[in-house]
Structures are given as structure tokens and as C-alpha cells.
Design a binder for these strands. Structure first.
Length: 276
DNA sequence: AAGATTACCTGAAGGC
DNA sequence: TGCCTTCAGGTAATCT
């Protein structure tokens, strides 16, 4: 499941390989992933040059310059199973929905569950479509983040998953961050002191940076742009390890449901919700 | 305010 | 060439 580190790695690969290149062709096999329509995306972007790229949370914004000099943008969200490949000679399977051609360099969008979206944006690289998305988790200043999360009644895990407070964390890295911070996933920010909240943010940034360096986490089916798995999985402390021993204290890791998500935590290290 | 539910999709895994 | 159910979880929408 692509979260911030996986998206960051995809973005870096796109920028390194495609900056300055012109989108010369587009083949659509399943148009449902293109918004507002395959026709609109083709009309605006084919012939345009990729000039830059930004990531915010789990979104990528590809910057294009059209032949008439006007800017246009493609907002990409991989959701659960979206993948982007930059591969010469790659044979697309039935899950490849869009095939882009950048002056002979093929770029394929593959998405098993078809949840992801490639959205044409013409109102700037801070599109209205993501106006409700909070600051990036990796770069948000502690002061701003504290103001956004302080006093919340929902479980801290639900707050970390809320992309409107800060963006980028998904289920895997939330569980990892809370474990490292020694905070129970059901603890409520309103009950937590500032130092504890700061520690949660510090640990979240730490785990995100580490995961980026290791090429992301491959759990179900994330691979990088060359089809290679990320190798952060072996670093995971709790996610996917329910029933196994905590690597720090030896207690049996428990699994509960928080905010509708499978949640793994260590009852020894992360204590009780009220203690946080 | 926030939980529950549903929708969007497919594949893996497990029960029988 | 098994069938069925459940689970995986990012996000939006809807209901309570």
C-alpha cells in the first residue's frame, strides 16, 4: 500500500527520468482511472513537456508546459494498488490501464484494484481538489502540527490517518510510529501532554525518512518503478506481526480495530490508552 | 464529533 | 478448472 515513502520514491524516479521530456503519446486501456475524462487528459497533456514534480502527502503533482506555453498539471494518487513503471520492453498485463510515451520512453500506470486516479488539473499546482489536505507529515513544523492535533477527541491513530491534519501516513507507518513513540493507538490527543505528542511526530518523521531510504515497504504488492520490491518490510516492528513477539520486550503483539483499520501494537511497550 | 457503514475493486487466504 | 466468505485499507460519501 503506497504511503508517503513509496510515493516519494515514485516521484523521484519520475522526475529523474522524465524531466524535460515531452509526452508524445497516450494509450488508454481502462479510462476509469483518468479524470475528468481520458479525452480531456489527452487533449491537454499530449504534446506537453514535463517540467517539474511535487509531492504532498500521498499525492504527486506533475507539472507540464503545453506547447502554447500554458501550464497544466496531472495529480496522481496511487491509493491502494497503483503502480508506475518506467520500463523498456516491459510487457503490460491486464492491470496496466494507461500507457504513456515520453519521446520513446514508456511509462505505464498499473492498478490491480483501480482505486487510483490520474487527474488533470488546470487551476495550479495547489489544486482546489486537495484544498482539504493538510501539510506534509515529513516537513510540517511541530508547532503547526501541535495546533492541528491538540485537543482532538478521536484516537490518536485516527488523527494520524486523517490527511486533513497532516498528510502522508497510512496504516503501516501509523502503527510503526506509535510503537516507536510508545503510545497506545487508542490514546486521545486531548489526554496527551505536549511532550508525548511531539514524540509521536518525531518518530513519524523518523520512520518515514528511514523507509524512504530503504525504498519503501513492500507488503502486498508495492514495487518501485523498475518493478523491484522495497526492503523496509524487514524493518517493521509491529505491522503484520500480530501474535508474534515484540522485538523489544517479548510480549505478544495484539491486533485490534481502530478507525476501521487493522491495528497492531505491543501491550507491553505501548501501555494503556489512559496512560498516554 | 466521530463511529459505523457503504462504495469503489481485485486477489489472497482459509474453511468446507 | 471448486465455491464461498473474509480480509487487505485509501478516500469520499452518507447516516446516526
Amino acid at each position: 500500500m503506497p504511503e508517503l515513502p513509496e510515493v516519494e520514491n515514485v516521484g523521484r524516479a519520475l522526475l529523474e527520468n522524465l524531466r524535460g521530456r515531452r509526452l508524445t503519446g497516450m494509450t488508454v486501456r481502462f479510462g476509469g482511472v483518468l479524470e475528468p475524462s481520458p479525452r480531456a487528459v489527452r487533449r491537454v497533456l499530449v504534446g506537453a513537456r514535463l517540467t517539474d514534480l511535487h509531492r504532498r502527502g500521498k499525492y504527486l503533482i506533475l507539472h507540464f508546459e503545453r506547447q502554447d506555453g500554458k501550464p497544466a498539471y496531472l495529480m496522481v494518487h496511487l491509493r491502494m494498488t497503483g503502480q508506475i513503471f518506467i520500463l523498456d520492453g516491459y510487457i503490460p498485463d491486464n492491470h496496466v490501464h494507461v500507457m504513456l510515451d515520453f519521446e520513446g520512453l514508456p511509462v505505464h500506470y498499473r492498478d490491480i484494484r483501480k482505486f487510483g486516479r490520474l487527474t488533470l488539473v488546470e487551476d495550479g499546482y495547489q489544486p482546489a481538489a486537495m484544498a482539504h489536505i493538510g501539510p506534509d507529515m515529513l516537513t510540517v513544523r511541530p508547532r503547526e502540527w501541535l495546533e492541528r492535533i491538540a485537543g482532538r477527541l478521536a484516537p490518536v491513530k485516527a488523527c494520524l490517518l486523517d490527511q486533513g491534519i497532516a498528510s502522508g501516513l497510512g496504516n503501516i507507518y501509523v502503527d510503526e510510529s506509535l510503537f516507536l513513540a510508545r503510545v497506545h493507538p487508542l490514546a486521545r490527543p486531548i489526554d496527551m501532554d505536549e511532550a508525548t505528542l511531539r514524540e509521536v511526530l518525531r518518530r513519524a518523521k523518523q520512520v518515514l525518512r528511514l523507509a524512504i531510504r530503504h525504498g519503501g515497504t513492500t507488503f502486498m504488492n508495492f514495487t518501485n518503478f523498475r518493478g523491484r520490491p522495497g526492503n523496509f518490510r524487514r524493518k517493521l516492528r509491529v505491522y503484520g506481526r500480530a501474535g508474534q513477539e515484540c522485538r523489544d520486550c517479548g510480549a505478544t503483539l495484539e491486533k485490534i480495530t481502530v478507525a476501521g483499520r487493522g491495528t497492531v501494537f505491543c501491550p507491553g511497550c505501548q501501555g494503556e490508552p489512559g496512560e498516554a
